[in-house]
């Protein structure tokens, strides 16, 4: 018996399904992405189970283990408070987030809290990561 070969036809690949998948992935990553400024140094926030959900926006002050500061992702020195005031006034923020590394000694963080509280700019919060369910 002689088998007949099928005639070879070049069919175009269906790209519509590919575009659908890519769109889904794109929307997913756009939704989960946080476009906040990151710190110019490594910051691992402390773990706490009683933290509340953090809204977006606001001014972020990052504190490294050695006490180095960054305001909205840019390194800051002793003029950090001016930068916070400027950022808070420019964006009319109502939240100031202190994103300190878990291992940072509190002597680097407590003066920030005092100064921010005295300035009465906005609500001051400490950034934490939720602990795994016990």
């Amino acid at each position: 018996m002689k088998l007949r070969r099928r005639a070879r036809t070049t069919r175009a690949e269906p790209v519509v399904a590919l575009i659908d998948v890519v769109f889904f992935l794109l929307v997913f990553f756009m939704l989960v992405a946080r476009l906040d400024a990151t710190a110019p140094f490594q910051v691992t926030p402390p773990v706490a189970g009683s933290g509340r959900d953090m809204p977006g926006g606001g001014v972020t002050i990052s504190v490294a283990r050695d006490g180095a500061l960054a305001v909205n992702g840019r390194p800051a020195g002793p003029d950090w408070m001016d930068r916070v005031r400027y950022a808070a006034a420019a964006d009319q923020v109502d939240l100031i987030r202190v994103n300190a590394d878990a291992g940072t000694p509190l002597r680097h963080v407590l003066p920030l809290f005092s100064a921010l509280e005295a300035a009465q700019l906005a609500e001051v919060v400490l950034v934490v990561t939720p602990e795994p369910v016990r």
Partner: peptide, 24 residues
């Protein structure tokens, strides 16, 4: 689409962050 997808994949931060109020 692929360029946008790659951008968001690379820049996304997956940290789940909470907050503890310090002062209002």
């Amino acid at each position: 689409l692929f360029i946008l997808l790659f951008y968001f994949m690379v820049t996304s931060v997956y940290l789940d962050l909470d907050m503890i109020p310090v002062s209002k």
